[in-house]
């Protein structure tokens, strides 16, 4: 009494392991519920507002615990006081993990070129995708995430940690 008897002959799909795994990883990426500043509000808009609806891409589920998430969206400016905390959160995430720097402040410091702000979160954690904008529109964030998906789909078996 297997699945075949219910659905008829499903046939066989052949693919590479790489493609199957990468497809799975992009299909249910869980971002960490981690908002810092202004961009976090746009992130809420992206995830919460029905107009944008991030769940189309299988990632509406935000996890508050870093141990359950595989994507960190750094939404907002990172201060010198926050940077060690950010790094610790990143270290707590299980592999494989990705980072999106959302907005100008996270990407390069934005308009705040001063003593308190880290000039780009890439000084603290390795960044995969930078999203420009102050703050980026929800569409821009979605584009950034789709870019990340495209990147993940290119990942090679040999590079898996």
């Amino acid at each position: 009494m297997g699945l075949e008897q219910k659905l008829g002959n499903l046939g066989v799909v052949t693919t590479t392991l790489e493609q199957a795994v990468n497809w799975g990883r992009t299909g249910s990426m869980w971002p960490m519920l981690f908002g810092l500043a202004c961009c976090a509000i746009e992130m809420i808009s992206t995830i919460g507002a029905p107009q944008n609806d991030l769940s189309r891409f299988g990632m509406e589920l935000m996890r508050a615990s870093p141990r359950q998430s595989d994507l960190m969206i750094v939404a907002g400016r990172v201060t010198r006081k926050m940077a060690p905390v950010l790094r610790r959160l990143y270290d707590q995430m299980p592999d494989p993990k990705w980072v999106v720097a959302m907005g100008d402040c996270a990407s390069c410091g934005g308009i705040f070129n001063n003593y308190a702000i880290v000039q780009g979160v890439d000084e603290v954690v390795p960044v995969d995708v930078y999203v420009a904008g102050c703050p980026p529109r929800p569409e821009a964030l979605i584009h950034g995430l789709l870019t990340l998906h495209a990147k993940v789909k290119q990942e090679k078996l040999v590079k898996w940690a």
């Binding site: 070129n113 001063n114 003593y115 890439d122 000084e123 390795p126």
Partner: peptide
């Protein structure tokens, strides 16, 4: 107390700054 200004990366000085920028591992 200085504002703590950091040099901004443009096309002409991109490589200079890129070399000394402390990227995370």
């Amino acid at each position: 107390y200085p504002l703590g200004y950091e040099e901004v990366q443009f096309t002409f000085n991109f490589d200079d700054i890129d070399k000394k920028k402390p990227y995370a591992k």
